[in-house]
Design a protein around this nucleic acid. Sequence first.
DNA 1: TTGTAAGCGTTATCAT
DNA 2: ATGATAACGCTTACAA
Lengths: 337, 337
Amino acid sequence: MQRQKVTLKDVGREAGVTIGTVSAIVRGSRDRIFYSDETRDRVLAVVAKLGYRVNPAARSLREGKTRTIGVMLDDITLPFLASLICAVGKALEPHGYSILLCNMDAAGAARESLLQTFARGHIDAFMLAGALTRLTDEDILAVQQRGHRVVLLERPAPSPVIASVGVDNQAGGHLAAAKLLARGCRRLVMLGGPAGNAMSQLRIAGALATCRAAGLPAAALTVLESGGWTTALGYESMHRHLAAGHRPDAVFACNDQLAIGAMWALTAHQLAIPDAVAVIGFDDSPMAAFAHPPLTTVRQPVAAMGAAAAELLIAPATADHAGQRHFPPELIERQTT
Amino acid sequence: MQRQKVTLKDVGREAGVTIGTVSAIVRGSRDRIFYSDETRDRVLAVVAKLGYRVNPAARSLREGKTRTIGVMLDDITLPFLASLICAVGKALEPHGYSILLCNMDAAGAARESLLQTFARGHIDAFMLAGALTRLTDEDILAVQQRGHRVVLLERPAPSPVIASVGVDNQAGGHLAAAKLLARGCRRLVMLGGPAGNAMSQLRIAGALATCRAAGLPAAALTVLESGGWTTALGYESMHRHLAAGHRPDAVFACNDQLAIGAMWALTAHQLAIPDAVAVIGFDDSPMAAFAHPPLTTVRQPVAAMGAAAAELLIAPATADHAGQRHFPPELIERQTT
DNA sequence: TTGTAAGCGTTATCAT
DNA sequence: ATGATAACGCTTACAA
């Protein structure tokens, strides 16, 4: 931006009032009480006529906050994370907040970049989305202790002091397994994401518990780690499993991409979906409905989660017990079960 | 951020100099010339000791620029756009610039949101990535005429005054078609993206021209519009085509997702890749190498393009002839040809 | 009900 | 080679 074209002073001069008056009226605070309708209307008219916009740098400098949320993620390519970011952005917008993107790839060593971005002071609060394995729990706690608000998405909070929002992953696993069992499936494959991923592990744990409770023998249950979240890896893992001669009658994948990749492999092996093998994904990302056949999946309530995250992000600093919001997942039945 | 902990004044006091001195030394300008090594070292030591960081709001207010680039896109889920954004971010970082995300979905009517984001003054320049169909060429020109820098990615510039960066799409189409022809393919399917998408049309036009030049009859060439850029749509279009009884011996898809979807359909129809049907994608997005089999594709030089975009974004305002950078694509041969 | 003025942390333009 | 000081545009006590 080049130097501001229209400032409070301009508006004030044109309307015949001082900048303090304009400032107060523009923000809408106090106006009803302290200013005459006459003045208010006149000022607002000039604001509209001149096209005045507040200068955020000046406001930030004065208020000591930037109305900007820093979002860090290690892979913006993951559809679920991307839609979560969008949801957060949507919830943030009415409050005048924007999203500053910080891609981990771009930013050298994790710790450095996290602290440096904070140091830049550009940011009021931080949203960490995804596993962000290059960031230790200690790093996160350290940032929080420096007095910065931190909200975690798709990563378990390392301590009750750290705010987080997510679904109840175990419940999601339960939902999927219960449906598969009800359908009569008895040889289940659990398709996990990156090695050691917490979300993945919880979802699988939930499904496993449900299967055991239903009396399925351990031999009927196999857990596959695909090493990532992509369609390609889902295909690979499933293909390898099938090529080794295994014949499951159901697959529960820890996200929709993996599920769709698995479906690809099943189809390639002439296994009909859902007749020979039923498939359930996780997330209900946009592509789930357009898969072929449309994918049954465990939905995460993205909009609600985004709104909750936004709320935590901009809430006034309430001492030490951060909000930990867990949303209930929902089974969306389509045509793969 | 809460009120700054360490300011120039603090450093100055501690080092026994004035803030002007500290400011100049910190920025590194003039220091060698105007300041004694002794003072400089002492100041820098204090800066390090106290952990001083410049306050960007104050700097913005003073300098009249924010060192922030606004990035608008209509779908951050598209892998190629996402990686382009990352590349731009990476190129921007050494210059101290950040990326402010503006998702079109979140932002109501396009024109409104574009202008309003500008109005917020938060931004030095704007990067428009993707087709952004809700934004007319007039909207873009209007913004540019208001004195704001605009750079287009994956959308043709509506006028020479607007900067843009992209690949030579026709050349890419040529590369793909030439490879397919050289392989002996004679019945080609061109799999396009969203209806009317300019990138898609250019790529297909390039391929078509090459085929015609090679003497292929029009009847051997079929163009399919899949209506989007996703794997699912690629599958759908290809599946429909095959189900209708057609038997091409090659597919050129306008991005890698479409190509992979098409491969899925081909596999489902028992058509071996590449023996029965060869496939070429576009972009060389990360998943191309992990497709099964690994996908031959036309690579866009993402890093170079990102760097070029960053350069245009932060270059000083050079009157009216904006840079239009077109990069040469490159054929990456893997195992689908 | 409105005006006045003191900063917020920087940068840049003088002096010294 | 360094020190003062005036902006930058805004918010917020406090005065009137």
